[in-house]
C-alpha cells in the first residue's frame, strides 16, 4: 500500500515490482570432476513488491540462487521467470547489490552510479537520474570522490545508488550489509526499508542474520544445509518501522533459529 502511494507521485520511468517465479530449480557445480549439488528442487513464488529474505546456513547455496535470478548463471534444471518471462540472461530490471560494494575504483562516485545508464546507452538524455539516485542515498556531496576515499558504509550506499538508478523491478541483495559495522548496519537497514517502501520494487535479500531478516522482510524463507531446499516459508505481518525488541519478532526468531538447528542455545 505504501509502495503504491509512493508510485503515484514517482517520476514516469519508475516501475512497480515484478513477480518472480522460481520453479523446481536445481543447480550443481563441477568441482574437479565431482558434482556438488547446491540447490535441490527449489520453488518460490514472489508477489510483486514483496520483500523476501532468504535465510540459511552460510555456504548453503543462497547466493547461487541469487545469481540464477540475476541471470548470471543458468540453472541445471527448472526455470525462473520474471513476470512470466523466462530469465535467460542479465537484465537491468534485475539488479544485484553484492556483499562487497565492487565499485569501479577508476570511476568517481557519480560515474559509478551512472554505469547502468551508460551501459544501456541512455546516460546522455537521463543524467538527472544519476543525481537523483545520489540524493536518495544522501551522497550528493561525494559525487566527485573516488572509491578509495569512501568508508565501507558510504561505498555500499553508492553501490545501492548504482543499482537503484536503473529503477529495477527486482532488487537482489546478496548480504549487502554483511561487512558493515553494527551501527552503520542498523542505519542502512532502516534506509533500505524506506527505499523499498518509496519505490515499490520486489526485493530479494540473502542474509544469514535472522534478526536482519525479521526487521526488514515481510516474508522469510529458511533454507536447509547444502544442497539448499526450502525448509520454511514464514510471513512476517508486522508494520514498519519494526522494533528489534518486539516480542512477536523475538518469538519468530527463536523459531527460525530452531529450524537452523540452534535451539539448544536459545
Amino acid at each position: 500500500m505504501v509502495a503504491a502511494a509512493a508510485l503515484a507521485e514517482a517520476p514516469t520511468h519508475a516501475t512497480a515490482g515484478a513477480a518472480l517465479d522460481i520453479e523446481q530449480v536445481s543447480h550443481a557445480f563441477d568441482i574437479d570432476g565431482a558434482e556438488l549439488p547446491v540447490l535441490s528442487d527449489v520453488s518460490i513464488s514472489v508477489e510483486p513488491g514483496e520483500f523476501v529474505a532468504l535465510l540459511g546456513p552460510s555456504g548453503c547455496g543462497k547466493s547461487t540462487l541469487l545469481r540464477l535470478v540475476a541471470g548470471l548463471d543458468k540453472p541445471r534444471a527448472g526455470s525462473l521467470r520474471e513476470d512470466e518471462v523466462r530469465i535467460i540472461r542479465p537484465h537491468p530490471s534485475r539488479v544485484v547489490v553484492f556483499q562487497d560494494p565492487t565499485l569501479f575504483p577508476w570511476r568517481s562516485v557519480w560515474d559509478n552510479v551512472a554505469l547502468g545508464l551508460e551501459a544501456q546507452g541512455i546516460l546522455k538524455s537521463q543524467r538527472q537520474r544519476v543525481d537523483d539516485a545520489l540524493d536518495l542515498v544522501g551522497l550528493s556531496s561525494f559525487r566527485k570522490a573516488y572509491p578509495y576515499q569512501l568508508s565501507g558504509g558510504m561505498a555500499q550506499r553508492v553501490a545501492l545508488a548504482r543499482a537503484l538508478v536503473n529503477d529495477p523491478r527486482i532488487l537482489i541483495l546478496d548480504e549487502p550489509l554483511g561487512k558493515l559495522d553494527s551501527l552503520t548496519r542498523i542505519t542502512m537497514q532502516a534506509e533500505l526499508v524506506s527505499l523499498w517502501q518509496r519505490k515499490g520494487f520486489t526485493t530479494l535479500l540473502v542474509t544469514h542474520d535472522a534478526e536482519e531478516a525479521l526487521v526488514l522482510a515481510n516474508r522469510v524463507i529458511v533454507f536447509s544445509d547444502r544442497p539448499a531446499r526450502v525448509k520454511a516459508d514464514i510471513r512476517v505481518d508486522r508494520p514498519y518501522p519494526r522494533h528489534r525488541g518486539d516480542p512477536y519478532l523475538a518469538d519468530l526468531r527463536r523459531q527460525i533459529l530452531g529450524l537452523l538447528g540452534l535451539d539448544a542455545t536459545w
Binding site: L72, R94, T102, F104, A119, Q120
Partner: peptide, 17 residues
C-alpha cells in the same frame, strides 16, 4: 576481477562495454 564483469552485466553491459 570477475565481480566487475558481473556488476556490469547485471547493469545491462554489452561485450564491447
Amino acid at each position: 576481477s570477475n565481480a566487475y564483469y558481473d556488476v556490469a552485466r547485471t547493469l545491462g553491459a554489452k561485450p564491447s562495454f
